[in-house]
């Protein structure tokens, strides 16, 4: 495993820690899209089915279990925790996320490397992960106040994907890795969706201002 991959995974983990910090200590999920969080649960459930079929490493298995457990836990808090659920910005979380699931199913059925259950579900999970941030970005744009933890959470999620691109470049050049079009293009699309957010996040950080996205 190269440094970019490790940093990417750690950034992903850190984003979850930041979100859990907000939920468990501030007892708030204001500004967090439940729809995006539910999409992540679906992403991890469909991608990590190979937990039952193939073993890679202790690291790999542990991380998969952490991502599954925390994503389900976050959705549970947002839906059922008696304090946290009252802070959910429900009226602003309006993105039609079923449409993203449908789109990803159709795309996975049309474009995949092999036509078997695990492979098609894995491909579906990549397509869905690429667009899963959209409800969250739309919600941020509607929020008048984006608190620091929410901004940092989304930034870390985007940084994780950008680091994965560097990881793929490294593997391609240094490890003689083959072309992997499906994860690469999905990952590029996913990272590109953050471009606008990155711009305003870095700008607010440089000017020491509160993060605000233009409507």
């Amino acid at each position: 495993m190269n440094l970019f991959r490790l940093l990417g995974d750690m950034t992903h983990l850190l984003s979850i820690v930041v979100l859990l910090l907000k939920i468990r200590t501030v007892k708030s999920c204001a500004g967090i899209s439940l729809k995006t969080q539910e999409l992540y649960v679906i992403v991890f459930l469909t991608r990590y089915l190979d937990l039952f079929t193939k073993y890679y490493s202790v690291y790999n298995t542990a991380m998969k279990l952490v991502f599954l457990g925390t994503s389900i836990g976050i959705v549970w808090y947002m839906r059922y925790h008696k304090v946290v659920k009252q802070t959910y910005s429900k009226d602003e979380d309006t993105f039609k996320h079923y449409f993203l699931i449908l789109l990803s199913i159709i795309l996975a059925l049309l474009i995949h490397r092999a036509f078997d259950v695990i492979e098609v579900l894995w491909t579906f999970s990549l397509y869905l992960e690429a667009v899963a941030i959209l409800p969250q970005l739309v919600l941020l744009q509607k929020s008048r106040n984006i608190d620091t933890l929410t901004g940092d959470y989304v930034f870390l999620l985007g940084a994780y994907r950008a680091l994965y691109i560097l990881n793929w470049v490294y593997r391609f050049l240094m490890e003689n890795h083959k072309f992997r079009w499906i994860p690469w293009i999905s990952g590029l699309v996913q990272t590109a969706l953050y471009a606008d957010f990155f711009y305003y996040y870095i700008k607010s950080w440089k000017n020491r201002e509160k993060l605000k996205l233009p409507a």
């Binding site: 995974d9 991380m63 991502f67 994965y164 083959k178 994860p183």
Partner: peptide
């Protein structure tokens, strides 16, 4: 291993 498996990432 080089090449081969796509699924070793998270």
């Amino acid at each position: 291993a080089a090449g081969g498996d796509d699924h070793d990432e998270l």
